[in-house]
């Protein structure tokens, strides 16, 4: 039986043959514990086949964008609270590792969903939000979308599987450009490098995504799953390496200092270290 879900950060329901997932957590769908817990509900449903859905669509109702990535403010307050409780760095690192294990499990479930998955993106598609979009089979972007891995500004690397998944989809030079410069690519450029499959006018991304979802439903379900499994292997070893790298870097004082600067900043200008 098809189900609907109404959470605090997202909701999902069946629309035609597609399962539509709507991200809606102000200010820009930052991914913290609450979002993760609700994504786990969705991941379990997807693992169970999502009641025969033929496609899954992710989109955001937040005008600013698809998602700004990990909830950095929660990450910082978590560090401060753990210290206040006298928690050792080893224990704190274990908590981060546990969070990463959970998010990787969820993202792998989306990545391996037995139907076509589509990210309908606009505006900010940064960090963890970009990594969520990269789990999808197809990314459609309206012309306002910008894609960015800002993690090096914090002394980190992407930790939700972004590097292996981006490497799976585009050339290494593009990965290095995004990773090492921390710059954002506009939708047109992202389309040119093959990251974005379809580029649409502002405000048209959901209509284009639904049209694609309808198209995929015309094909045989088992054939779609077979084709997807053949063409989209999970980069298991690289994902594990990325997790280990993130956890190692997280223990550096550089990270806490950068997060503190971000947390306490009242400047309207973009955060830069």
């Amino acid at each position: 039986m098809s189900r609907t879900f109404e959470g605090k950060t997202l909701r999902f329901s069946h629309v035609g043959s597609a399962l539509e997932v709507v991200l809606n957590r102000a200010p820009c769908n930052e991914i913290g514990l609450e979002t993760l817990t609700e994504l786990e509900v969705l991941a379990n449903y997807v693992r169970d086949g999502a009641s025969g859905a033929r496609a899954m669509i992710f989109y955001s109702e937040i005008p600013t964008g698809f998602s700004a990535g990990a909830d950095l403010k929660a990450l910082y307050t978590g560090i401060v609270e753990r210290r206040a409780k006298g928690m050792t760095m080893a224990a704190a690192t274990q908590e981060v590792r546990s969070f990463l294990d959970r998010i990787h499990s969820v993202f792998n479930a989306f990545d391996m969903a037995p139907f076509t998955t589509i990210a309908a993106t606009h505006g900010v598609v940064f960090g963890g939000g970009f990594e969520l979009a990269l789990t999808c089979d197809v990314i459609i972007a309206d012309k306002s979308a910008r894609f960015c891995f800002p993690e090096l500004r914090l002394g980190l690397v992407p930790g939700f599987g972004g590097i292996p998944r981006l490497s799976r989809d585009v050339g290494n030079a593009v990965v290095r450009d995004l990773l090492l410069t921390g710059r954002s690519l506009n939708a047109t450029r992202a389309h040119e490098v093959g990251l974005v499959s379809q580029l649409v006018a502002r405000g048209e991304v959901l209509a284009a995504t639904r049209a694609l979802a309808t198209q995929t439903a015309r094909f045989d379900a088992a054939t779609t799953t077979t084709a997807k499994t053949f063409m989209k292997p999970i980069p298991t070893e690289q994902l594990a390496n990325e997790k280990a790298l993130f956890t190692m870097l997280f223990t550096s004082p550089i990270v806490e200092a950068a997060l503190a600067k971000f947390f306490h900043s009242t400047d309207v200008r973009p955060y830069l270290p």
Binding site: P27, G65, S144, N186, A187, P270
Partner: peptide
Amino acid sequence: IDSMQAMELLTEIEE
């Protein structure tokens, strides 16, 4: 404008 809207301006300029 704030930093998010500055990104919109950047996109407009690039386009």
